[in-house]
Design a protein around this nucleic acid. Structure first.
Lengths: 155, 155
DNA sequence: ACTTCTATTGTAAGCATTTGCAACAGCAGA
DNA sequence: TCTGCTGTTGCAAATGCTTACAATAGAAGT
């Protein structure tokens, strides 16, 4: 459904003065090679470097921000040490993350249908909700009555 | 509606082995002194230090995380350099942030009513949606037809 | 008051990410 | 081809936040 050349052509069309450099092409190739995956910036850098190319991590950060500005990738804080990036292709999905046990539950985009509608109609705001993480407490860790959620207790 | 001693008493009740130290008290006092404000960690540190106390910034980070774990403060990335923290008191509010012009639009918590309900009923997940930032495009910056959003163009 | 146990702090070092700047590369016009 | 303009990169340094560890200081029991 998406291929490298289409993506690049689209990016160039949307901003004719942007340059499709080797680095940008390589980063996109790396992302396309695992189209459903969530990758940290370091992952991406490693994937590109695995092909024998040298490429600075700060450049990858810049490229990922650039792709994000065009809605090509999403950036999400899943609560691990570093943000993950993934291609925005087809139906987006999101994650519920339990603060108590760390479980990550995948949910599909329909949960945001009503919020999207409200924002568009009542606020005329066009939200970018491509890959959200919602923190909270999962069923197993549900706090009992007025007893206490200890969460990842750091007491 | 909230005062320092009630908060402290509640925190102690919820975790009897937690200690109410001078530092924790001072951080809470600082937050309570501007109950509606959004403060960076650095702000909070400065507020406390303005009272002549010395207190390390890393301690403040730790205290804010601790308060967040108990749902007393929320932490939000508003897209400025650093996260902002604010007391979770009464009705929460949220923000829409325009990626093109930087405008910040305040919205109240009702926009999340339906999402909350879905998560609770369909996923038995109890979300912590206390102070969200939703990025997107505001009315004034609405992209025209198939023309292009340049956003904060970094071309 | 003294001891013991554990929570919390300060310090310094670490990680993730961003930024300033000089060098470089692609494109346009002379 | 040369010249200038602008976008992009690599490097190094800066920023925001977290963590390891040793030292400190509450709380509870003696």
């Amino acid at each position: 459904m998406i291929d490298l050349d289409t993506l690049l052509a689209d990016l160039r069309r949307r901003n004719p003065s942007a340059r499709i450099t080797a680095q940008r092409r390589l980063v996109l190739e790396a992302l396309l090679s695992d189209i459903k995956g969530h990758h940290t910036c370091e992952d991406v850098t490693r994937m590109v470097q695995a092909r024998g190319v040298t490429l600075d991590q700060s450049t990858v950060y810049r490229i990922l921000q650039w792709l994000k500005a065009y809605g090509v990738v999403s950036q999400t804080d899943l609560g691990m040490g570093s943000d993950v990036y993934c291609l925005v292709a087809g139906e987006p999905h999101h994650h519920l993350i339990c603060l108590a046990c760390g479980a990550i539950i995948d949910v599909d985009d329909t949960i945001f249908a009503s919020l999207r509608r409200t924002l568009k109609l009542a606020y005329r705001f066009d939200p970018r909700i491509e890959h959200f993480a919602i923190f909270g407490t999962c069923e197993k860790c549900k706090p009992h009555d007025d007893e206490d959620e200890h969460l990842n207790d750091m007491s």
